[in-house]
Design a protein around this nucleic acid. Structure first.
Lengths: 169, 169
DNA sequence: CAACATACGGAACGCGCGCCCCGGTTGGCA
DNA sequence: TGCCAACCGGGGCGCGCGTTCCGTATGTTG
C-alpha cells in the first residue's frame, strides 16, 4: 500500500470517528470526506460502502464492550452493568445508538450478547420473565435514541432498569 | 366549493388515513395520491403541505384522546390510563407514534397534556419526582417507535409504567 | 530519471421525495 | 346550452445523498 494511501485512510477514519460520534450514522459522507480533506471517491477507495466505514469506526469500541460483559456470580448485576455501560457510551457518543440499529455483524453480536445476559438474569429471577431479546433490543434502541433529544439520560436509564426488574410482592 | 373538489378531498383524506396508519408519516405523498386515484397536484390544492394533511388526518383522534385525559381523584391512575391509551392507539396505527413527533400545534397540545398529568401524578407521589415533561415525551416517543419493530407492545408498556413509579421502600 | 501502477479529487449519475406549474377538462350558473 | 372559473392530472424541478467514473497527479521501482 502506498504511503499517501495509508495516510488518507487514517485521515478518513479520524474524521469519520469524530463526525459519527457527533451526528451519528446520518452524517453525509461528503461531510466526512471534506473534514478529512479528501474527495468522496477516496473514501470509497478504502471502504466499499458507508456502512463499512461506520463498522470500521465502531468495531473496536463495540467489541471491547461485548468482551467486557461480565459473568460474575450475579447475573442480574451483570445485565444491568452492561446496560449502564451502553447507556454511558451512547450518552457521550451518538454513534453508539446507531451501532445497535445499523445492520452489521457487529450489531448481531451485540444483540446476541444482550440475549445471553438477559436469559441468565431471567433464570436468576432478577428480571421479569416475559421479555424476549427482541423486546430488550427495541427498548434499548428507543431509549438510546431518546437520549439525544433533550431528555435526561440518567433518568431514562433508571426508568428502564427499574422497569425491567421483576416485581417483588 | 365544487362537488368534484369535495369528493376528491374526501378521497385524499381516506387514502391518507389508511396509509398513514399503515406506514406512518414517512409514506410518500405520491403513494397517497395514487391510492386516492388522484394526481399529486390535487393533493396540494387541498392541503398546503404534507404535514397539513397529516394533521388533518390525525387531529380528530388526537384531540379526542387529549379530551379524554381524566382527572379523577387518582392522578397516578389518570396518567397511567392516558399512557395506556396512547400505547394502545400506537400499537394499532402507526401514525400515532408520529403524532407525538411531527411538529404541529397538535403535538404541542399532546405534550402539554402529558406535562399536566405528569405534574399532578408527581405531586401525588405516584411517579418518581426527578422526571420532567421532556423526559416523559422522549421516553414515550422511543417506546411507541419500538412497538413497530417486532417487540411486544404490551411488555414494553408495562416496563415503562413500572419504571415510572416511585420506589416504595 | 523514467515509466507505470496506484491513488486522488471532484464532477456527475441515479434515486426518492416534497412541491409547483401548465395545458386541458369539467361542473355549475345565467 | 354556452361560457367561464374552478379544478384536475401528471410531468417536471430542486435538493440531498450514496455511489461511480475518469482524467490527472504522485509515490515507487529499476
Amino acid at each position: 500500500m502506498r504511503a499517501d494511501a495509508a495516510r488518507n485512510r487514517a485521515k478518513v477514519l479520524d474524521a469519520a470517528r469524530e463526525l459519527f460520534a457527533e451526528q451519528g450514522f446520518d452524517v453525509p459522507l461528503d461531510e466526512i470526506a471534506a473534514k478529512a480533506g479528501v474527495g468522496p471517491g477516496t473514501v470509497y477507495r478504502h471502504f466499499p460502502t458507508k456502512q463499512a466505514l461506520f463498522q470500521a469506526v465502531t468495531e473496536a469500541r463495540v467489541s471491547a464492550m461485548i468482551a467486557s460483559a461480565g459473568s460474575s456470580g450475579d447475573p442480574g448485576a451483570d445485565l444491568f452493568a452492561f446496560l449502564r455501560k451502553m447507556a454511558g457510551e451512547a450518552a457521550a457518543k451518538r454513534d453508539m445508538s446507531d451501532a445497535i440499529a445499523v445492520p452489521s455483524e457487529l450489531r448481531d453480536s451485540l444483540h446476541a450478547t444482550l440475549g445471553g445476559l438477559l436469559a441468565r438474569a431471567q433464570e436468576a429471577g432478577a428480571v421479569r420473565a416475559d421479555i424476549v431479546t427482541q423486546d430488550l433490543v427495541s427498548l434499548m434502541k428507543g431509549m438510546l435514541q431518546s437520549m439525544h433529544e433533550g431528555a435526561n439520560p440518567q433518568v431514562l436509564l433508571e426508568i428502564v432498569l427499574q422497569g425491567l426488574q421483576s416485581r417483588k410482592p
